[in-house]
Simulated scan of single mutants.
Amino acid sequence: MKLTGKQKRFLRANANRLRPIFSVGKNGLNEVWLREVSQAVDNRELVKISIQQSADVDTDDVKNFIESNSDINVVQTIGNTVLLFDESSNPKHRDISTGVFSL
């Protein structure tokens, strides 16, 4: 799914108050980590990930890994933080996506 500029602005505004709930460290990226992130995105729809200084990867590596191995959209990368979005499979958790798709 391709997001428009308005939709990305809406998501960035909603993510302003969020804290990162996942981090990428020296263990790097793997399928188990991505599965956990996918579950969190499915429950919350909007998730921030931080990249630790000790990590062997940068934001571009994380972005490419997530986009190539899942349906999650990378909305924004700033510094060592990556913002992710995907519509929840549970209709009860679709608070943010309702606003996104109404734009």
Rank of each mutant, 00 (worst) to 15 (best):
S70Q: 05
P91Y: 13
R94F: 03
Q39V: 12
N30V: 14
L83E: 01
A40G: 04
E67F: 00
L29K: 00
S50M: 13
S38D: 04
V24T: 05
I21P: 02
N27I: 07
V47S: 06
L46M: 03
N16S: 12
S50C: 14
L84F: 01
R94N: 04
G25A: 09
K26H: 10
K92V: 09
E31K: 14
A13R: 11
S89H: 12
K92M: 12
N30T: 10
G25N: 09
A40C: 10
I21S: 15
V100A: 05
L18D: 08
F85V: 03
E31F: 08
V41C: 04
T81Q: 13
V37W: 04
V41R: 03
F65I: 04
N27W: 07
R17C: 05
D60N: 12
A55L: 05
I66S: 00
N73E: 09
W33G: 02
T81I: 15
S97R: 00
Q39E: 15
R12C: 15
K48W: 07
Q53Y: 08
L83F: 06
I78H: 10
K63D: 06
N14A: 14
D71S: 13
I66V: 15
D56Q: 11
L11P: 00
D95M: 07
V47I: 12
V75F: 11
R19D: 10
W33T: 02
D71N: 14
V37T: 03
L18M: 07
G28M: 06
Q53R: 15
F10W: 01
N27D: 13
Q39I: 12
F101D: 07
G28P: 02
D60Q: 15
I21F: 03
Q7S: 03
Q52F: 05
L83T: 12
L29M: 04
G25K: 08
K26Y: 11
F10P: 00
D60R: 13
D58T: 01
V62L: 15
S38A: 13
T59H: 09
V75H: 04
S38H: 00
V37L: 10
N14V: 06
I72R: 02
S50E: 15
F65C: 02
I72G: 00
D86R: 13
N64K: 10
